[in-house]
Design a protein around this nucleic acid. Sequence first.
DNA 1: CGGTGTCAATGGTCTGACCACTTCTTCTTT
DNA 2: AAAGAAGAAGTGGTCAGACCATTGACACCG
Lengths: 241, 241
Amino acid sequence: MDADSLQPSFAERPGRAFEVVLAWVDEQILSGDLAVGDQLPAERELARLLNVSRAAVREAVRTLQAQGVVRSSVGAGAAGGTTINALPSDALTRLLRLHVALANFPHEDVIEVRVALERLSVRLAAQNATPEQLDVSQKAIDVMADPDIEREAFNDADTAFHVALAAAAGNRLAMDTTAAIRESMRLPILDRFRHVHAWDDIVEDLRRGHEAIQAAVTRGDAEEAERLVETHIRSAWHALS
Amino acid sequence: MDADSLQPSFAERPGRAFEVVLAWVDEQILSGDLAVGDQLPAERELARLLNVSRAAVREAVRTLQAQGVVRSSVGAGAAGGTTINALPSDALTRLLRLHVALANFPHEDVIEVRVALERLSVRLAAQNATPEQLDVSQKAIDVMADPDIEREAFNDADTAFHVALAAAAGNRLAMDTTAAIRESMRLPILDRFRHVHAWDDIVEDLRRGHEAIQAAVTRGDAEEAERLVETHIRSAWHALS
DNA sequence: CGGTGTCAATGGTCTGACCACTTCTTCTTT
DNA sequence: AAAGAAGAAGTGGTCAGACCATTGACACCG
């Protein structure tokens, strides 16, 4: 009944109790008061601060944990407690993959977004890529050049190629989202790889596409790289459908 | 003590209690005993079945909810209870928003990705938007037309305009990512709104940009809409920097 | 000086209770 | 007999308070 003077807007808020906690954490993160590596208040303290039970706080923490936002460990001192996670892009990738796998998004929708992001990636890569970064994508091309390569290994190298180009873009957010979406389509694409008939023709098209993209990026031709990557993604998906 | 004869492998398992529940649900889903639309046992029953407390069951349910796997609603009968879910989206938006905020990406990087996604959104919107969807974005424009509008309200309506266009694209993934990125920049943009000097000039530019985009989308001119939205975003950010 | 044990703080768990809401059943009234 | 009202039962949502295991800091004793 008293206190609350520090956080009245949250303590008075209606709605589910654990959502009050989530909203509070969201606000703290978005406003910059909580950053990666920082510790959340202890569960008991947070419960008192927001006028909810500790059980409600714990349910919110579980939600944040499931999303990879925080990590909890027991014990006193700096090592214990709940801390904001570096949110390795794995969390994004995991969640995107889960959603796509559950057919929540039509594959065509995913393709559209993927085209938009990869066009951005290769454009930035053509402008910013270092020779070392281009070596990484070239290595993926070399792997795929093996005429006896298994379809799964080819798919992995294919994924690695696109992720490597995204990494070469020098834009971390573009890389993370591009990689997450390509990664989320790894299994659906592999499934099609396995059931397609004209495998030899398709894989040859893919190889040519990759090499053309790599060449355009290497010589810094952003526009051509954008055009090539869009054609590459769309025609590959069409051939597999 | 007793019982457990039905699920000994789970009831006897060590490790965190809520993970026992998660493992049980995983097993039921993977084995096909639980499918989309099915109901989980009631929390009290599940707690008794797995020999854990109801609080542990609830923490597991929160985890599943955060992952979008289940949906809960109160009440007796078929309408109440926790059911296996098909399609959530909040989880993705929330995670992406936090991801952008936490990773502390350079704002320029975020702008690049935002341009790529919003170009996609307005292109799809120009091709697919219904009059009802265009009404929503028009309403945001009307709100911003108020000459006495507060800067925060203007920013909210601005966000709403871009999100509405993304929604009109008819591509759920594009909408979620576009909305998440625009929302992740809500606070930084608001901060600039508050400290900018030539507010009147800037806001007039923004209004003209919105109206031009809305007009292009309405008449189905995808290419012009793409061009306009890119110019709009880049020039607005430049004016605020 | 160095080990050693106490102590405090943390997350993890449990119990048992109450609430708000929804549905189904049963009984009363027309 | 039909319609409606009252209540019983079951659901998730929340709370308070307790205990446990783990961890780190600090005072104490050798």
